[in-house]
């Protein structure tokens, strides 16, 4: 019987999975904090080794580019990032672990990429780097690298102003969408660890961004990754930089609070 097969599969899986076998759906709820895992743990040993070794991790190339950009004077103001922020190893330490963060001027959360764009435009008076451009990915990777190993902060839990955006992000995570009518939660809360066409379903924690994704053969942001999932669900994507993504990113960061930053991550 199918049921017994499903049970067999479940027996091999984590205890949390067993509770709602054989078919779980909908409202199984959040993953208990102590059962959260980075998708790093689902990767093959060679892919893990690639992430772990800076000389093998392709993301290092973006980090190094970002470091050069950090030092370079740029824009009409003739300012380098380093001109104001100095040594990134000090000034940027922990910054990526607390984004998205509330931005007073827009009255809502912004992600790390947007903070860098704003700084470039407003402080350096340089052209806004496009989302997913090499420049923005490089600077983001360099800044995020300074937080590697640090725990993702519970920014949304501490900052009252972020609460409505957190709730909006949570609602988006749980909203079924697209022609396939799936929510993020259907897979990443309720079916993580199972095989989706041979690929282990990750819990979906944003610990490694920006990541070098082997499937992309390139670097990409969390928003790019979110779009990939939405396209898979045959749902309409949002434009890069849309508040809907940032709210979702905020929820994902809250959901991953306390987990260590791995940037730049490598993912299959």
């Amino acid at each position: 019987m199918t049921r017994s097969i499903a049970r067999g599969l479940c027996a091999a899986a984590a205890v949390a999975l067993i509770l709602s076998c054989p078919i779980r759906s909908g409202d199984a709820g959040n993953i208990p904090l102590d059962q959260r895992r980075s998708s790093y743990e689902l990767m093959s040993p060679p892919t893990r080794a690639m992430q772990d070794d800076d000389t093998a991790n392709p993301g290092t190339l973006w980090v190094l580019d970002g470091e050069a950009l950090w030092q370079r004077e740029s824009g009409a103001a003739g300012q380098a990032c380093a001109g104001c922020h100095g040594d990134a190893a000090q000034s940027m330490k922990g910054v990526a672990a607390r984004y998205p963060a509330f931005d007073a001027s827009s009255g809502r959360p912004i992600d790390l990429e947007q903070r860098i764009v704003d700084c470039r435009v407003e402080r350096q008076r340089a052209p806004a780097p496009a989302r997913e451009s090499k420049e923005l990915l490089a600077l983001t990777a360099f800044v995020a690298r300074q937080s590697r190993g640090m725990a993702i902060e519970d920014v949304a839990g501490k900052d009252e102003r972020l609460r409505p955006f957190l709730e909006s992000g949570r609602a988006a995570f749980e909203q079924r969408q697209g022609q396939l009518n799936l929510s993020c939660a259907n897979c990443h809360d309720d079916n993580w660890g199972r095989s989706l066409a041979g690929n282990a379903v990750p819990q979906g924690h944003p610990t490694g961004y920006p990541i070098y994704r082997l499937e992309w053969q390139g670097m990409g942001s969390l928003q790019r990754r979110l779009r990939n999932c939405m396209i898979g669900m045959r749902a309409e994507t949002y434009a890069y930089g849309s508040p809907e993504y940032v709210d979702l990113q905020l929820y994902l960061a809250w959901r991953a609070r306390g987990m260590p930053v791995e940037a730049p991550g490598v993912r299959p």
């Binding site: 078919i23 969408q177 994507t237």
Partner: peptide, 23 residues
């Protein structure tokens, strides 16, 4: 049959949220 199943409805076009234009 199962209200909150994750199995898509293969022959239905209404009641969906944000379906991509192509679909």
């Amino acid at each position: 049959i199962v209200k909150d199943t994750i199995m898509p409805s293969f022959y239905r076009i209404d009641g969906f949220h944000r379906v991509a234009p192509a679909f």
